[in-house]
Simulated assay, not measured.
Amino acid sequence: MADRQGAQQARGRGGFASARRRPRLGTLALVALLHVLAVYGLAKAFAPDFTGSVEREVMEAITVTVTTPPEELPDPEPEPDPGAAGEEGREATPREVTAPEPPVRVQPPVPVPQASSTGTAASSGARERGEGTGAGGTGTGTGSGQGGGGAGGGAVNKPVHVSGGIDDARDYPVPEGGRAARRGTEVIVRVIVGTDGRASNCTVYRPSPDPEADRITCRLVTERLRFRPATDAAGNPVPAPFYWRQRWF
């Protein structure tokens, strides 16, 4: 019994040893790669120039140069001839245009004038004259004068001085400072010449520097001067204004 068990144990040990698996190919490659990397690292540390030259040779061996073919450019267009005719343009196509219709303006109706009547009323427009003042005809006056019963209109011919005069040396008193103080000055007076040719209603129109001389001028004009009176269109004498200028020399 004991011998049988010992034999089984011995057989079991021998079978385990014979049943141990072989290492895989991938594992061996990994272990080899690790050894190579370890050796490369030691060489990189202790001989960097050597490892650098090896790296360059390896990179040059695996570098692939790719050459790009040159790009084909289009042929240049020929330059146009300066004397050649241009290309034909597109034919113009006329477009139909419709003009808008003008608006129609309606003229307002023209009022028709009233026809004259043949009635007997005094206010009718067909009568030559009515009972009012605006019917036309002639009145009691001539209508040509300044008043309804006057003889005519205003003066057509102005009054004219015919006689009388004023002496500036004898008719005026000597002013203070002598006659030279009044020399070169003048006064203009306005009078009304009546139908008898005499002047009246004298007023100073443009005074001189000497008021006393102006008053003397008014008195002398009304006393001494005589005029041919103004006349109207019919030749009748009418009152009219006259302006007398007195200068001192």
Rank of each mutant, 00 (worst) to 15 (best):
R182S: 13
V97W: 01
V106I: 15
S200K: 11
T222A: 03
P237A: 01
T133A: 13
P211Q: 06
R24N: 15
R20V: 14
V193H: 08
T118C: 01
P94I: 03
S144C: 06
A233K: 01
A84D: 11
A92H: 14
Y243C: 02
E176F: 05
R198N: 11
T27V: 04
L42A: 05
L34D: 09
A121Y: 00
T142W: 03
P76K: 02
R24Q: 07
V156G: 01
A240N: 10
R56Q: 14
A85G: 12
Q5M: 05
E128A: 14
G6P: 04
G178M: 13
T222D: 04
R224A: 08
R245C: 03
A38L: 07
R245I: 11
A38P: 01
T195L: 00
D196T: 12
T67H: 11
E88I: 07
N236A: 12
V189L: 13
V160N: 15
Y205G: 10
G14W: 08
G134Y: 08
V36A: 13
A92S: 09
R21I: 14
V162G: 06
K158L: 08
M59Y: 01
G148C: 09
E223P: 04
V66D: 05
G83K: 09
L33H: 06
A240K: 03
K44L: 04
G150D: 14
A45T: 05
G83E: 06
L30Q: 08
N157V: 15
G147Q: 10
M1G: 09
G14K: 12
A155M: 01
T27R: 12
D81H: 07
A7L: 07
L33M: 13
